[in-house]
Design a protein around this nucleic acid. Sequence first.
DNA 1: TCGTAATCGAGACGGTACGTCGAGTCTTAGG
DNA 2: CCTAAGACTCGACGTACCGTCTCGATTACGA
Lengths: 196, 196, 196, 196
Amino acid sequence: MSATPPNPQRRSERSRQAILAAAIELCTEKGYVGVTVEAIAARAGVSKKTIYRWWPSKGFVLLEALAQRTDSHAPFPDTGHLAADLYAQMTGVVRLLTTPPFGPAYIGILSELHHDPELTAAVHEQFITPRFTAAVNRLKSAQRQGRLSADADLELAVELLYGPLYYRYALRKPAHTAERMAELVDHVLRTLDCRP
Amino acid sequence: MSATPPNPQRRSERSRQAILAAAIELCTEKGYVGVTVEAIAARAGVSKKTIYRWWPSKGFVLLEALAQRTDSHAPFPDTGHLAADLYAQMTGVVRLLTTPPFGPAYIGILSELHHDPELTAAVHEQFITPRFTAAVNRLKSAQRQGRLSADADLELAVELLYGPLYYRYALRKPAHTAERMAELVDHVLRTLDCRP
Amino acid sequence: MSATPPNPQRRSERSRQAILAAAIELCTEKGYVGVTVEAIAARAGVSKKTIYRWWPSKGFVLLEALAQRTDSHAPFPDTGHLAADLYAQMTGVVRLLTTPPFGPAYIGILSELHHDPELTAAVHEQFITPRFTAAVNRLKSAQRQGRLSADADLELAVELLYGPLYYRYALRKPAHTAERMAELVDHVLRTLDCRP
Amino acid sequence: MSATPPNPQRRSERSRQAILAAAIELCTEKGYVGVTVEAIAARAGVSKKTIYRWWPSKGFVLLEALAQRTDSHAPFPDTGHLAADLYAQMTGVVRLLTTPPFGPAYIGILSELHHDPELTAAVHEQFITPRFTAAVNRLKSAQRQGRLSADADLELAVELLYGPLYYRYALRKPAHTAERMAELVDHVLRTLDCRP
DNA sequence: TCGTAATCGAGACGGTACGTCGAGTCTTAGG
DNA sequence: CCTAAGACTCGACGTACCGTCTCGATTACGA
């Protein structure tokens, strides 16, 4: 009578991979709105039930596909040159938001957040919080080395860095150019830097 | 044989108002996903065709409803105290994003931008560009008065101010508290201020 | 909020005919189990919604198709020769049960009766009761003419005539041959006949 | 490579009984349509595979359950009073068709016959033919005793007796009352009786 | 007595059809 | 011509069972 949760041990890895691949492909070809559970099932040669058994909605499928294909993601760079590191990292974020096949997928997922709290939680846990923390940590390490003023508000700094990126994303303004992003990094760092 | 465009002169103002009201009500009661053309038509006592004749999609309906109900919006404040003016303005933006009934509507519209370029254009024209320009102008006026360094990058400044707001919105992090927003304004202004 | 019933005046006769035709065709080609709402919709070039709007289930669709295609059905024959008339009529029933395309449809409908009281009511009203009554009336008319004993139980007689037919149908025994059916009629009539 | 047939010696009697019991229970509680292989398996604490290994379909499961629970069924009664014997037997048939838990099960099985020839064969072998033959034999024995005319068509007689019962069953008319059934028996016997 | 091979429970799998919902188009009648 | 009403096609939703198919774990048989 109770809906017993599925047993992950019995899960077919084959189907899982086919589903993730199909989801990404569809998103590439037809955009996020073209990704439907039905289409994923058809392309992956899989039953809809199998999808619903393991994921609550297509957003989660794409999220997992995205995570799998980007989890070899380099940790926050730490070359010693803070500005360059931040720049590199932020460039990565913009690239993720703007280049196929991950751009459309990530954007679609983000737009789903506004009516799906559970997906929001998952995205935060897997994507956003780690990156935010990594950025803060990178700044902290610079601060420990005395390259940033001791009382700098590092979380605010990170928001100032990422903020304009997402501002443009959210309103669908064109993304920052490389130079513009460099200026942004410089500008924010200048605020924090105790020593030039 | 050609689809003659509708004649705005013969348009029923009664229906128009009923539709806009129904859209806002539905958005308040059931959230953006609960707003469907079907539901609007039913509640407004209006034919679906009438809606489709005058608006391309539900996003435009809500946009118009929103515009109508907020176009008494005050222009960018200019009390002489720059920080206070910016703070007031940004508070308004956050309030728009977070308080019913306009919050859900505006958020829903924004999430639609990612798959509707025409809606994007309309939103930019009616909402975003005017406010962005107003903010830049307010800074320009301060600059002219010599209160900001002459070579300050004002557009970047506005992005730094609004950015964190939309960063949190886009990722559904909780909005900034009043204090936090004040700190944000202060921090950014400090970067630009030639004179303390 | 209330589910308003559809307006029959607005109904598309075109769709209705296409649906009935498709149902009969499918039943002919693939048997009753091959008739699905989905298949009917596909073949008729019609939306599933349209089917569900006008019929509660596929049984009703087939019933209507059947009724439409047999309602030119001759009334109970009355040639003056009672045995021949009964024989003719019963032959018709057997033919209805055994020859495509109506046989499979009728049989399928009948098998549905066992879990659908509303379909049962409809079938009784449209098919069974009229025929039963007609048969009783034919016997009554013979009785009035003094050809059947005045106290004969005519309803029982009709059950004795139709009974064996449905006995074989229900248990899927092969239907009666023509001779066998003639013997059946003779046998029953002999019981009732006051005058040889 | 070939599918080796299961070995009945190693069959789990425990599972078999649980399955049959579950099938009957489900049929009692939710009617024939509520009996699904899935539900049987769940209730019996048994794997679906186990069911499919031993039975071709749910119809066969119910048939076996029915047979097991009614095979203590008395043989055709032979008290010397023919009418009473026939009446008793036919009452039994009606009771089987109308009283839970066997009524719904039997009716469900019968309705399955129309699209399952193998089930038809099984039902005939286990249920129908034996009873039909028994009835004919009972009449033959009466005939041998000179109580029925020597040239009476006994098979037709049995069809006349059972026919009306199944006529009402097939069309879901209410079953005969006890008196009506008595009249039916008398009427048919009168046709056959050489001696009053 | 002990492998060993089949059956067992559990339940995931690819399918098919279900009945519902909303989108956007089209038709009809009335003003 | 606009409107209300709403029927239409289309496509996707999420669910229910089907019958097939692995899995280990259990169990009874024959070596």
